[in-house]
Design a protein around this nucleic acid. Structure first.
Lengths: 146, 146
DNA sequence: ATATTTGTAACTGTAACAGTTACTATATCA
DNA sequence: TGATATAGTAACTGTTACAGTTACAAATAT
């Protein structure tokens, strides 16, 4: 299975939005997040750390500590979350090939461009959706299966 | 580094197109492909096998054997190559979460949809480019650095 | 027949990553 | 001030994916 970091990060952000965690007083703990996600609290804290580094949320240690959103859900796009946890393109490419071959000489550069364009297409697609929109979708779907 | 299979597959297809490998009599060996790519012949044969299964090329064992394109380069799109070697979405998602939580109850399904939409965006982007077009780009870039 | 080539199995080494344990630093609150 | 709760993080394990490698059988041309 591929990396679960993006999936974990989206779940974290949706849950914070659902809990209206918008200030330190409404902080949600990594234990609570991990319980909802079905993951380990340390794994969640690692993802939360990446989201905090990207400025999407803030955290505080100690009793009554936890994480809360740094911006309103409608001002957060899925591309922000993707950028926060996925640092490189998911597909690889070789830096060099046989320079004696007319194709090998230029292929790496061209293939690098193709791989980057895939990543750009993915990000453009994610930039169209806000966290607020995803929250609404989740809440609607959740209500339907009560 | 992420998987090199897509990069390898594109290189294989471009090289076959460059060599005008369009029939058994013009078959290119895995050794020749591997040399240009800078990869191991067995690794190349595994990728070639996936491309053959997808109907993008054909192979023949034995002396004077190798691989050749099954269709014209202008009738092959990068999305065909992507589909041939990447069987699932590059990002993962969890099947289940805490059903007692209003968010955990619906999040997996919604996140699965998001991940699939990323893959769809990537494929739509790749569907716009043909092998013939990539070959031209490679040949132009190669000539420029002679 | 001989040489060439694919296909494939088996194995190695490496890297990414989720999970886990344990500990420190930080913060609240009684 | 002391007890408690919590983030942050290091260190380690187990799993999986994958590129590389060796070896060999099957297929094919000459």
């Amino acid at each position: 299975m591929a990396s679960l970091r993006f999936a974990t990060a989206v779940h974290v952000m949706v849950l914070l939005a659902h809990e209206d965690a918008s200030a330190p007083a409404r902080a949600v703990t990594s234990g609570y997040l991990a319980q909802s996600i079905g993951a380990n609290p340390v794994v969640v804290r690692r993802v939360v750390g990446a989201l905090a580094s990207a400025g999407l949320l803030e955290t505080r240690a100690g009793a009554q500590g936890g994480a809360w959103l740094a911006r309103e859900p409608r001002k957060i796009h899925l591309s922000d979350i993707y950028d926060a946890v996925e640092d490189g393109a998911p597909l690889g490419f070789r830096e060099t090939a046989d320079t004696e071959c007319p194709v090998g000489r230029a292929a790496p550069q061209v293939i690098c461009g193709i791989v980057r364009s895939i990543d750009a297409a993915a990000r453009n697609s994610l930039a169209k959706t806000t966290l607020a929109s995803v929250l609404k979708t989740v809440e609607t779907a959740s209500a339907e299966r009560v």
